[in-house]
Structures are given as C-alpha cells and as structure tokens.
Simulated assay, not measured.
Amino acid sequence: MYQQLVTHNGKFHADDVFASVILTQLFPELSLIRTRDEKITDDENNFVYDVGGGEFDHHGIDDQRQHENGVPMAAFGLIWQKFGETYLKTTMPTITSDLIVKTKAHVEKSFIIGIDALDNGVTTYQSPAFTISDAINDFYDEDHDLESFKSAIAFAKGVLENHIYKTVAKLIAEKEVIEHATFISDELLLLPVVGTWKDYVEHFDKCRFVVMPRKDGNWMIQGVPVSHGSFQVKQPLPQINKPWIIFIHRTGFMGVVDTQEHALSLAKSLIDNSLL
C-alpha cells in the first residue's frame, strides 16, 4: 500500500489538480505532499504523478502516449485512463457497468482531452475565453503552496463531478430518445419524449427536421445542424404567420407550435416546399 500521494510543488496546473481530485477520492487515507525531492519522488512506496518520470508523469522527451485524436496525454488523462472507471463507480455506485464505460469515454472526449491539450500546449484547444486552466491557476499562492493547491482541488472536484452527473443524465436521456424515436420519413424524426437527440441524428444524413414536445406543453420543430456543434441548420424555418405558430426564431433554427399535429404538418410542408 502507498504511503502518500506525491506531485510537484511550485506553480500548479489543471492537469495535476484534476488528477489529484481522483486520487484523493480513491485514496482518502493518504496524505498529499508537493515536492521535487528525488528521494521522495523515487520512493516506490509513494504514489507519484506529474513528476518523477514514472508511469503517471508525461514530461519525458520520448513519451508518446496520447488520446485517440492525437492529443498528448497529461497527468489528468493518464490517471483517468487507469482509474476513471473505479472513480465513477465510487462517485456514482448505482449506475450500470455499461453506462460507466460510456461515461468514461464521453468525459474523456468532452472534458479531459481539453485539459491535457492545454497542459501540452496544443493550441487547437486554446481560446480567448477564460478557461478552466485559468480558473485553477488563480488559486495558486506561492506563500501558501499546499493550502492553495487543496483549495484548487476542492474547486476542481465540483467542476468534474458536475460534468460527470450531466454526462450521465445526457446518456440516459439519449437512450430514451433512441428507444422512442420514430422516423416519419428519411427527412423527419418524431421524438415523443424530451431528450438529447443531436448526437443520434448526426448518423442520418438526410434528416432535416426533428419534432419533439416541450415541457410547457407545446411542441417544437427544430432544424438539424449541418455538422456537429454547428449553429447553422440544413433547412432554416421561414417566418410564417399562423394562429397556431407561437414563435419562430429569427435565425430559423427552431419554431414552437401548439400541438404535435401542427408541428408535423409544418415540417412536412417545409420538406415538400409547399408552405401552409
């Protein structure tokens, strides 16, 4: 059994802070120290990461470990790869094993790769917006090194857990959508339940519109994006005045009507180019 968790001292970054979130959860009995003292980092009785040149340090010149999209791994990715499923089982013990596997992969793709990319200077993921890495680094206080590191861990723990919970909810909702989805035609999908649908619909090139209920009792017709993450849709809705049309967004990406029947009728007329 390990004696203590060990990572580098000095300026910390999002990758070692988020890695520490996982490790302090899985090894709560171990104390955490920050040092570059080789006597400590070379001690096999310590769990050492992001320093020391071992299994969980990515700073070696010849380190070729990377995510599926080619982004080099940092400490966060290396720890997630090894302990992600165990961490998810500990954090959400009631979810099924297949959902754990899907959640692990989704969180890596949607969150961890970005952290690892920033730590490795992969500029594709850089943004002028304030990043998670910026927020983490703001906790650093040179005069109170360990205390500020632990404060950053507490912040990062909330961020990571929130992302995981939302990912699980999204995957469950997406499963419901797939089970209940009905293609009225190749170009029109009816969803009788509210849920995440865009990732699913991306697999169907011809689909142009999705009709689904709203929580307020009305129905929505939404255009399918031209590509993943795009705000542009394949066929925008024109501005149409009908008593049963409640709202059409000025960009045409979606509209709200009073009933499922009217939503389907509107979608079919747009597809057939026979405006009501």
Rank of each mutant, 00 (worst) to 15 (best):
Leu160Phe: 10
Glu161Leu: 05
Glu161Ile: 07
Asn162Leu: 08
Asn162Val: 03
His163Asp: 08
Ile164Asn: 02
Tyr165Lys: 02
Lys166Met: 07
Thr167Ser: 06
Val168His: 06
Ala169Leu: 07
Lys170Pro: 02
Lys170Met: 10
Lys170Thr: 12
Leu171Asp: 03
Ile172Cys: 07
Ala173Ser: 15
Lys175His: 10
Lys175Gly: 01
Glu176Gly: 15
Glu176Thr: 13
Val177Thr: 10
Val177Trp: 01
Val177Glu: 00
His180Val: 11
Ala181Leu: 11
Ala181His: 03
Ala181Arg: 06
Ala181Val: 13
Ala181Gln: 03
Ser185Trp: 10
Asp186Gly: 14
Leu188Thr: 13
Leu189Lys: 02
Leu190Val: 09
Leu190Phe: 10
Leu190Asn: 10
Leu191Asn: 05
Leu191His: 03
Pro192Asn: 06
Val193Ser: 02
Val193Ala: 00
Val193Arg: 06
Val193Phe: 02
Val194Cys: 11
Gly195Phe: 01
Trp197Gly: 01
Trp197Ser: 05
Asp199Ala: 11
Tyr200Glu: 08
Val201Leu: 12
Val201Ser: 04
Glu202Lys: 01
His203Ser: 13
Phe204Cys: 08
Phe204Tyr: 15
Phe204Leu: 13
Asp205Met: 11
Asp205Thr: 09
Lys206Tyr: 09
Arg208Thr: 15
Arg208Trp: 14
Arg208Gly: 14
Val210Ala: 02
Met212Ser: 05
Met212Lys: 11
Pro213Thr: 09
Pro213Val: 07
Lys215Asn: 14
Lys215Ile: 13
Lys215Asp: 13
Asp216Lys: 14
Asp216Thr: 15
Asp216Tyr: 14
Gly217Glu: 09
Gly217Ile: 08
Gly217Asp: 11
Asn218Phe: 09
Trp219Ala: 09
Trp219Cys: 08
Met220Ala: 12
